[in-house]
């Protein structure tokens, strides 16, 4: 158990160092600041008081950048190891391939969640300063479910990194994420309206696709709707963990069979 903890901890630490030393995060934070600051002083038609648009744009940026970081970090973990040949000294150590997959996944997740936490803290402060009414519970739920989103997309990107090239992996993950966020809720009605074989394809996507729209609480945060039930939150997080476990299981199986 201790051995497992030490091995996993070592892999997580390296993933965190990789992310923070690349300075991608600093670029992303600066870009967000550059985009949001001018908007914060904007008064359309000379009338002040509008704040939801800023929240919407800020949250959109948080989602966009967190997806890019989550998918980007996970998608390059294994390809970078193979390309730079650091995989050889790694595999020579007394650590199983399955544990390597798990450790790298947890490292990528930790890196993405740490970046996300900073985004949400900054957003929370901005929100609290601008608005007289603040919805901390809804914001906390949004943050929690956003972690669920990262749990799923990081696992998906890691699985993809063992099956295809990095660019194909990023493209596919991007399409899945955007597609599900935009159309995920409407899939049942689309399925009902489609004839076969389109119907069968959509049913497959609906059944097996990553329903990342479950984790999107932006509507509630921006427009001040009430919180989601905690039981629903728990179900959604369980879905995230289950989906990620399935992806990681498949990734571990693929990595064990991979020739080096």
């Amino acid at each position: 158990m201790k051995m497992c903890g030490r091995q996993t901890g070592a892999l997580v630490r390296v993933a965190l160092l990789d992310l923070y030393r690349r300075k991608d995060l600093i670029v992303v934070w600066l870009l967000s600041l550059v985009l949001l600051l001018p908007l914060a002083f904007f008064s359309p038609f000379g009338i002040s008081g509008a704040g939801r648009y800023l929240n919407e744009i800020a949250l959109l940026l948080v989602w966009l950048f967190s997806a890019v970081i989550g998918v980007g970090v996970a998608a390059r973990l294994f390809p970078a190891e193979f390309e730079s040949r650091t995989i050889f000294p790694l595999l020579a150590k007394p650590v199983t391939r399955g544990r390597i997959v798990l450790g790298k996944y947890l490292g990528a997740l930790a890196a993405s969640v740490s970046a996300l936490t900073v985004f949400y803290l900054a957003y929370g402060v901005l929100c609290g300063l601008r608005q007289s009414v603040w919805f901390p519970v809804v914001l906390f739920q949004a943050f929690l479910l956003h972690i669920g989103f990262l749990i799923v997309v990081t696992a998906l990107a890691m699985l993809g990194s063992l099956m295809m090239t990095p660019s194909a992996n990023l493209t596919l993950c991007g399409l899945l994420i955007v597609g599900m966020l935009v159309f995920g809720q409407r899939l049942p009605s689309l399925i009902a309206a489609q004839p076969y074989p389109g119907k069968a394809f959509l049913m497959l996507v609906h059944a097996l696709g990553p329903h990342v729209e479950f984790f999107d609480l932006r509507q509630r945060v921006i427009h001040g709707w009430s919180r989601v039930g905690w039981d629903v939150c728990a179900v959604v997080l369980l879905y995230a963990i289950g989906y990620a476990a399935a992806c990681l299981g498949l990734a571990g199986w693929l990595f064990c069979r991979k020739k080096v």
């Binding site: 995920g184 609906h206 329903h211 729209e213 999107d216 509630r220 989601v228």
Partner: peptide, 12 residues
Amino acid sequence: DPWAWINGRVHV
């Protein structure tokens, strides 16, 4: 349809 059920609860 559990996914639709979840969407119905999560989204307004």
